[in-house]
Design a protein around this nucleic acid. Structure first.
Lengths: 338, 338
DNA sequence: CTGAAAGCGCTAACAT
DNA sequence: ATGTTAGCGCTTTCAG
């Protein structure tokens, strides 16, 4: 922020006008003489004048910036969410301040604070995997900051929400495996304190029950990353062999793909010997071999919808009732892994 | 930005002190009575006082925010860059304002403007593919905004830079194919107005020349995305057949992977019939079938280095000489596609 | 040890 | 049609 910036005052001084006149001329105030307007505008243009957003925000008590707290940008789902948010936000004259929590609770707290410090008009958040205490968000919300949760929500805080119907998605995925002839189905699950984790597990269980297949708790393994699969490789292979597993439902695509690779390295043929389905449908699913069947989770729509709900709050301040939850239902994307 | 925020003045009024005393107490000014300090601090803590970052920035003429203009967050390389930048920035008390140009020139111009409007202390940029006119950045730079280009630089603007040695990387990749017995090597190239595009092509050409292999201009095809491969599928297959191509060097991994898939769908065996190498080494390379040989481009280091150079400028304002260019050399990551 | 006053850049009542 | 003034939240001389 070097001082080479022309200010209103500078213009006023040079043109021998008052700052207020310049200010008004610039925004086409009807009171101002056309002549003066032209003079001011041309000059401002010439010297490349740009109003200081900080001063404006301070003055207006509105930053036109919304904060976004997102676990990890690298994931295709989340970067799609960002695009959905940005496209709508920019269109409405809002900037987006993106904070990456890196699935780290401490960082999430700091990020929340930073957003508040910058007086963002509202916050969009998907909580980190390691967050178990939500008081940082709760406090912000109680202080009146409009907030929308998406994907990984916090049930204790009553706000607008955008979620994927994880239960149904998992049900669809598991049912698909059953339809393809699988009975002993392994579920690679996310931590159960994440709603996403429990919902997907519940959907899996319900699908089995609906078809009268007994649920075997041993076939539910907490394992939700590529690295996790690597470290559990022996255990998983043993389990698959002993339990005669013929289908795997993984809580996300990259875990599913890692599982396929582990299987292939142990000479299993996919989908002949064992079928694998993921959740999320990022571009990885198409790149994998064989291309991965999965249920698609709409990142862009999630972002857009979250932003839409937030904008609605921003435009109708004070009305704190009628929080709505938008549920996006995933659909089956069949490829060659099942 | 609802008004539920406690201000210094609020505290001063309630504690019956002057704003200046409160301000000083909060920052442990030696002049202030210990008693008073304790009083103020405890109260501030209790009411959850947080200084208004906007007001601070306005006052200090420094935002402690750096702007980042990045083509597309979805790409693994770029999201790694972001992590590299953030890790260093946060450590030094800076926030990062991320703008995604979406490879769109217009958007890049707007983003630049938005960053300037917010009076960021410096800007990190990797230019969009569609940017041919750099005046928006040039103007900013001439106005004294510290700027560092990374990966996709602008040669006309003299600044610090962090780049990958694209020439050498391409040379390594092409030489590797030659070592593996390829002579007729197809290059899937990026647009030549991008330095990255021309450097990688030059490296490819030089590697051929170094081994006395004639360069066939027909074997250099502008094609740098997955979609591009799809639309050029027939042309590429025909070319490969007619020219007896046995090796492909693609300008990035996703193009390489798409090419592999196109080849496989036409019954080519990789690496037996034809070998493929990419550039960049994102996680896709490991997921692809067969796992893709590529040269690794260090995203995290790129980001970190760019931020480091910027911080250096920020801490030594005024010294505009000695711009440095940090070159990161990619290394071969051999997998099974060659 | 504490307070009053000015100013960062801008706008909007309230003059004139 | 234009200028004066006050204030958004904060810091920092300068005065006491």
């Amino acid at each position: 922020m070097k001082s080479n910036h022309v200010t209103l005052k500078d213009i006023a001084r040079i043109l021998e006008l008052s700052p207020s006149t310049v200010s008004r001329a610039l925004k086409d105030h009807p009171d101002i003489n056309e002549e003066t307007k032209r003079l001011v505008k041309t000059f401002a243009e010439k010297v490349n004048y740009r109003p200081n957003a900080l001063a404006l925000s301070l003055r207006r008590q509105k930053t036109n910036t919304i904060g976004l707290i997102i676990p990890e940008i690298v994931h295709h789902f989340f970067s799609s969410v960002i695009s959905g948010i940005e496209d709508l936000a920019y269109g409405e004259g809002y900037n987006v301040m993106i904070c990456q929590s890196n699935e780290n609770y401490q960082r999430e707290v700091i990020d929340t604070q930073a957003l508040i410090d910058h007086r963002v008009d509202g916050i969009l958040v998907s909580v980190s995997k390691t967050t178990k205490d939500f008081s940082h968000l709760k406090t912000a919300h109680e202080n009146g900051i409009p907030m929308v949760f998406f994907d990984r929500i916090c049930e204790d805080i009553l706000t607008d929400r955008v979620i994927t119907d994880d239960f149904k998605g998992a049900h669809i995925a598991t049912s698909h495996l059953i339809d393809r002839g699988c009975r002993n189905i392994l579920h690679l699950a996310a931590p159960q304190h994440l709603i996403i984790g429990s919902q997907r597990k519940e959907g899996y269980i319900k699908a089995l029950q609906d078809r009268n297949i007994p649920v075997d708790e041993d076939l539910i393994v907490k394992c939700d990353t590529r690295e996790y699969v690597a470290s559990l490789r022996e255990h998983l292979l043993k389990l698959i062999k002993e339990k005669k597993v013929t289908g795997i439902f993984a809580v996300n695509d990259s875990t599913a793909i890692a599982a396929m690779q582990a299987l292939q390295s142990a000479d299993y043929k996919i989908p002949d010997d064992i079928k694998v389905i993921g959740f999320g449908d990022g571009p990885n699913a198409e790149i994998a071999y064989p291309p991965l069947t999965t249920v698609e989770q709409k990142g862009y729509e999630t972002g857009r919808e979250a932003m839409r709900l937030l904008l609605q709050r921003l435009e109708n301040p004070g009305i704190e009732i009628n929080y709505s939850t938008k549920v996006l239902t995933p659909t089956l994307k069949q490829r060659q892994s099942t």
